[in-house]
Write a protein that binds this DNA or RNA. Structure first.
Lengths: 205, 205
DNA sequence: AGAAAAATCCTGTTTTTAGGGGATAGAGGC
DNA sequence: GCCTCTATCCCCTAAAAACAGGATTTTTCT
C-alpha cells in the first residue's frame, strides 16, 4: 500500500519540485498540498495522510506551532520538517514539537525517500548535513523567556533605554533593569550587542 | 527560437520544481543547472544561456557577488534573482549588481514565465509582492560601510567592548569609538541594540 | 597632483548599562 | 500549606556607551 504524502509549503516551486520527484514513485501517493497552516488543517479534517512535509516558515503561523497542533489532533501522522536552512535552533524546536525528522531543501530524491521511509517505520530522520552539525556542536540551548522578558527584549531591540521602557510599560526602571539582567543571563550574553545578536539568531525578534 | 535558461541554486527541490514547471514550455530550452557559483562560472565558459535564474544564497559565494561577476563577463545574459524572502535589502543589492529582476520562490508558473519574457525584452521584473513592498516603503537605505567599520561592527556584535576591540585591532579606543559613531550614524541607530538589529536585518552580521 | 574619503587620534561631559547585592507580593503547581 | 517562578521594587558602584566637537595622517580615486 502506497504511503500517502501531503505537503504544506507556501513556495510553489518547492511543492512542484517535490511533486515531480515523487511522481515516479509507485509506493508514494501524492495527496496534494496546502500553501498555509489554515488550509492544511482544513484538509486534515477531510482526510489524513501518513506523512506531512512541512515548511518552517508559513505565512499564517510558524511550522513549529502547526506541527504541535497537528500532532495534538492527529498523533499518527508523521511530520517531516522542511527548510532551506541548517539552523540548529529551528530544527531542535521542530523536533521538540513532534516532528519525526528534518529534511533540507537541497536534499536529493534519494534522501527524501529515505526520510519518508524512516519516519513511516517510526524512526527519526535528519538530513546528513543536519546530523553532522548536530554531532559537532553538542547542543545549542535556546533560552526560555517569560512574557514580560519578551516584551522588554522587543523594546530593547527597538532602541529604547531602560527608562523609556519603564515609562512605556508603567513600571519602574529597576524592574526593567531586572528583566534586562535576566535576559542577559538566559542568553548568556554579557552586553546588549550579544543579546540582540542572539535574539535575532533564535528569531525572538 | 527558444529562450535558453540556466539555473544556479543549491536547493535540489527548487531546481527540480522549476524544471518541471518549464518542461512543458516549448519556447523555453532548459540548459541545466549549477549548485554553486564555481560550477555556474564553469558552465558559462562553455556556453551562454539567455537567462540565468540565480539564488541569493549559494554555498561558495553570495548570489549578489556572482551576479556582478557574471554581468561583468557576459553583459548580454539576463539575470533573475530568486529567493524565498521578500527582503528589500537583498533585492535592492541584487538589482544594483546587475540583475534584471527578482522572483520569489512562491511565484506561480505564469509569474515565472512573465518574468523570463520581460527580462528577455530588456525590461525589469519584480514579483508582484516585491513591487508592492517596494511601493509601500518608499525605500530602505542600506548603509554603505567601510572595511574598517565592518570589522568593528563584527567585533561589537561578538560582544567586545571598545577597549577590547582597540586591543584586537591595535588602535586606540578613541578610534574604535569614532568608527562606532559612524556606524550609529550610517545605520540611523541611536544605540548598540538598534545597530545590531539593523546589521542583522541587512545581513551585515 | 589634488580632492575626497577613510582611518587615526584627542578632550571633555552626560547618560546608560552591567554587576553586586538584596526584598516582597502574587499566581500556579503539587 | 508549601514551593517555585514571575514580576515588581530598592540600594550601590563601576564600566561602558553616547554626545559634542574637534584634528591629523593615510589611502584612494579622479
Amino acid at each position: 500500500m502506497a504511503i500517502k504524502i501531503f505537503i504544506t509549503d507556501d513556495h510553489y516551486m518547492i511543492v512542484e519540485g517535490i511533486r515531480s520527484l515523487l511522481q515516479q514513485e509507485k509506493d508514494v501517493e501524492w495527496m496534494g498540498h496546502a500553501m498555509n497552516a489554515a488550509s492544511c488543517l482544513g484538509f486534515l479534517q477531510q482526510q489524513q495522510p501518513d506523512v506531512i512535509l512541512m515548511d518552517i516558515n508559513l505565512p499564517d503561523k510558524s511550522g513549529i506551532d502547526l506541527c504541535q497542533e497537528v500532532k495534538g489532533k492527529y498523533p499518527d501522522i508523521h511530520i517531516l520538517g522542511l527548510s532551506s536552512f541548517n539552523q540548529q535552533s529551528f530544527i531542535q524546536k521542530m523536533m521538540e514539537h513532534g516532528a519525526s525528522g528534518y529534511v533540507l531543501k537541497n536534499a536529493t530524491r534519494e534522501e527524501l525517500l529515505e526520510a519518508i521511509e524512516a519516519v513511516m517505520k517510526g524512526q527519526k530522520f535528519l538530513s546528513p548535513e543536519v546530523s553532522a552539525t548536530n554531532g559537532r556542536n553538542e547542543e545549542i540551548r535556546i533560552p526560555v523567556i517569560t512574557r514580560r522578558e519578551k516584551e522588554v527584549l522587543a523594546l530593547i531591540a527597538e532602541g529604547l533605554t531602560n527608562s523609556e521602557i519603564a515609562e512605556k510599560l508603567f513600571v519602574s526602571t529597576t524592574t526593567v533593569d531586572s528583566h534586562r539582567k535576566s535576559l542577559l543571563a538566559k542568553f548568556e550574553a554579557k552586553n546588549t550587542a550579544t543579546l540582540i545578536r542572539m535574539a535575532a539568531k533564535f528569531s525572538f525578534i
